[in-house]
């Protein structure tokens, strides 16, 4: 018999799972193999060590202390449920806000930009530079400079400017 097999049988034997025939074979091996005989002794010591661990009783008033914890736990259980609900509600709220933002971005058509006065003139087939052009064509250089300055000042508030 090989020693590995002997060890397995030793362990089965300690669980009462070794039949009589195998037990005899094992005993035979143990008589001739000092290594396995030592192993049997070691397993015996281990069993004795483990058997030393008898059932233990909890600390006194276990049930009374448990009952008082039940009462406290019931209160905290409600709080725990509320906390869990809040923890779930926060990501749900953020998700809803994000979904709403995306829906607004993609589904609602953008408002038309208000066109500049020059753009409107272009659309109406008129020349937006006609006023400036007439100034540039004037003969007197000094008067032309002054008119250009005033025209530029008016350009800042083009909405209020009179149509040419």
């Amino acid at each position: 018999m090989r020693c590995n097999k002997a060890e397995t049988w030793l362990l089965w034997s300690s669980d009462g799972r070794l039949d009589a025939k195998r037990r005899r074979e094992l005993d035979e091996h143990l008589r001739t193999c000092p290594r396995c005989a030592l192993m049997e002794k070691e397993y015996g010591a281990l069993r004795s060590l483990l058997a030393n661990e008898g059932p233990a009783e909890p600390l006194p008033h276990f049930l009374e202390r448990l009952k008082s914890r039940f009462t406290a736990e019931k209160k905290s259980f409600v709080l725990l449920l509320w906390e869990r609900w809040c923890l779930r509600a926060v990501p749900v709220f953020l998700g809803a806000v994000l979904a709403f933002g995306l829906a607004v971005f993609f589904l609602v058509p953008p408002a038309q930009d208000q066109m500049a006065q020059s753009g409107l003139l272009f659309l109406n087939g008129q020349n937006p530079l006609s006023e400036t052009q007439s100034i540039l064509e004037e003969g007197m250089g000094e008067a032309r400079q002054m008119r250009l300055i005033f025209a530029a000042a008016d350009e800042a508030d083009y909405r209020g400017r009179e149509m040419p």
């Binding site: 661990e53 233990a56 009783e57 909890p58 276990f62 049930l63």
Partner: peptide, 21 residues
């Protein structure tokens, strides 16, 4: 609660011993 207390009394030593190990 009495029924559960009885269950506790019945199993407390087993649970405690195992946890203590």
């Amino acid at each position: 609660q009495d029924a559960f207390s009885e269950l506790v009394l019945k199993y407390q030593a087993k649970v405690f011993s195992m946890v203590l190990n």
